[in-house]
Design a protein around this nucleic acid. Structure first.
Lengths: 125, 125
DNA sequence: CAGTATCCCTAGAGATACTG
DNA sequence: CAGTATCTCTAGGGATACTG
């Protein structure tokens, strides 16, 4: 098999092919491709959900990491937090418009990973 | 803004909305969304490249992480390593067909991150 | 229910030196 | 040039306990 060049092109600023160390996109990329970040964004792509629901779906996440991940995504304007002043507390999380846009790119990636996982890890063609 | 549901759908196995802890796709996802993994795959989407070239492009990567990342991606069948028995050594890396397919999903994501980075990190609408 | 606050701990990242 | 081999270190992540 020969080397190929991807049809989808990178932003022109990467035209020299260098990904600068201090580039802000690195930070954003770290947030949205983080282990738990992806899963939370994906879960929320199915619609608004509560804390406990997210915890159940992103199986294996600790409370600490759920809180941290949600805060980061909220600060980044990707996730919206709606808190009701009731007892017991009720908090709903959902995607913002921007988060929704992003999830449209993430879903195909996760689907691909899911569909190719066995072949990739078990080495068969 | 109201909660929305993404048009792109997840694999049916995720229909219950749960991402199982032991799911193989988690491992694959970790590889391809790793800090350096993304950048290497992206760099290679521009075509075959040598070790030193990759090191230059993924600015800030250490030799250790470059070696480790390339090995993982090669084992996963995403990257092809072609070594010439010459002195000085010459090794070329390129994407396999599967890696190429993946890069088609990664490029839009990185482009999105690049285009939205400033607004995300500086908080303006 | 929806989180904080702590403590602990090691895997993973970087730096450096060396080599075929 | 294209890597390995070590060493070091800390910050990310888990577990647990507690709270408005």
């Amino acid at each position: 098999m020969e080397a190929q060049t991807s049809p989808a092109r990178l932003p022109a600023d990467f035209a020299d092919g260098v990904f600068p160390a201090g580039c802000p996109s690195r930070t954003v990329l770290d947030h949205i491709t983080s282990k738990w970040g992806v899963l939370i964004l994906l879960a929320l792509s199915e619609g608004e959900q509560r804390w406990s629901e997210l915890r159940r779906r992103a199986e294996g996440i600790s409370e600490k990491m759920l809180a941290q991940t949600l805060k980061t995504l909220e600060r980044d304007g990707l996730v919206l937090r709606k808190s009701q002043p009731v007892i017991p507390p009720r908090v709903d999380y959902s995607l913002t418009e921007r988060g929704y846009e992003l999830s449209g790119l993430l879903v195909p990636l996760v689907s691909w990973a899911y569909n190719n996982a066995d072949e990739i890890l078990n080495g068969q063609r």
